[in-house]
Every structure is written in structure tokens, then in C-alpha cells.
Amino acid sequence: MFTTLSNTLLFVTIRKHLTASVIIACVCVLSSVPVFADDIDLDQSSIGFNRVSDFASGLTGSYNSLFLQQTKKTNIANNNKGSDNLVSDQLKLISVGFSNSQRATGLSIVNEADLYQDEDEDSEASVIGQALVYPNPFRQNSDFGAELGYRLSKDMTLQVHMYNMFAQQVLKRTFNSGAEGARKGYNKLQINKDTFDGGLLSAGVYFYVLVHDGDILTRGKMVVKP
């Protein structure tokens, strides 16, 4: 994966030091070796550099989407019962370029390059794609019930509201940032007979809304079968 990293760059932004950038880009393409990142420690979400530091200073790389695509399952009736399963990993390199480093005067050789990582706080809180219930329609009166699945752009405090066809609220859950149900990546909340302590919803359509800081991120609808 890492040997092809240089070929998967989506955007390269050259801000300054055009000459140095061109040289580095040529070296990168011709050698087809990992120039910008030699190793990636997924656990620590960091990128290590060494080869590029032989060519330029003031290089600043940034990425917005380095994440593990994880499947989080949370029992909506009891958050402590959830389990995590790692499904796959994924890397998206958004931008790499040169920062306005005072140390850099043209092309020079230094030992370290400055790499910064965009913090989650800088990205917009959103639900990527649709929040969907599977299966839909579903029987609440079963052990399985259904799951509400949604992908979050980052860890965030999240509320799930659910309403019946009269716009009366039937369910509300609040998940703290980073907790199950409110983590960056794909989250799943289970809805079954335990959700209402054994009580069953009437067959019909129910509407859910995902809310962060009072802003509605997305909404959807599901149907309960008898």
C-alpha cells in the first residue's frame, strides 16, 4: 500500500518554492517510491517522514482523512453492550505542499520537515451519505430488530431523535463525542424490543433525525412491521 502512495495523491498544492517542488515531484514519479510518507502508524494516526527531508525544508503535508473504516455496533438500549469490529482501513491524502517556513531559503537540505495534521476540530461535523435503517421495514418484536447506520465525518456529540407519524417524539439518545454511536466513521445503533424495555411500537412509519449542537445533520424514515 505504501509503495504506491505517491501515485494516489489526490491534490498537490504548491504554495511556494516552485522549483523545489517540481524537482521533488519528478523524483517522486520517476522513482515510484514512497516519497512523502515512508510509514504510517494507523494506531497513532501519524505519518512519518524521512526521505523527503533530504531534499527540502519547509515542506508541510496535511491530510484530512486518515481513518480506519470501522464498524461500530451500539445497542441503543444499552450502550455498554456494543462491540467493535475492524472491517478495513483507508487512507485519503488530501493536500501536501510547502508552507511559508522561515528556515527555507530556496532549495536547501535540512534534516526535518514540518508535517502537520488537520485536527478533527477543523473539519465540519457532518453525516457522510445517508443514515439508513437495515432492514427496512423491520420487525421490532425480534431479537435482531434493525440497525440505524450512519457515517460521521469526525468524533462529535450526537443526538438521535425519533418521531411517530404525529410528530410526537418517541425516542431520544445522546452520545458523547468519541463514544460508541458518535465516532468518526461508520456507526450502528440497534433498535429492537429492548429499546423500549420490551414495549413495542405500533406498525407504521417513524422518522429519525441526527442532531449535532442543535444542527440537523440528516434525517430519514423507517417502517416498523407488526
Binding site: T71, L132, V133, Y134, N136, P137, G149, Y186, M222
Partner: peptide, 14 residues
């Protein structure tokens, strides 16, 4: 109302 299926590879719903 969306009828959904589960992608067995990713585990996500569509």
C-alpha cells in the same frame, strides 16, 4: 421510504 440492503464487504447499508 428507502428499502435497504447490507453490503457484506463493508458492512454498510445502502
Amino acid at each position: 421510504i428507502p428499502k435497504t440492503f447490507k453490503d457484506e464487504e463493508s458492512g454498510e447499508f445502502d
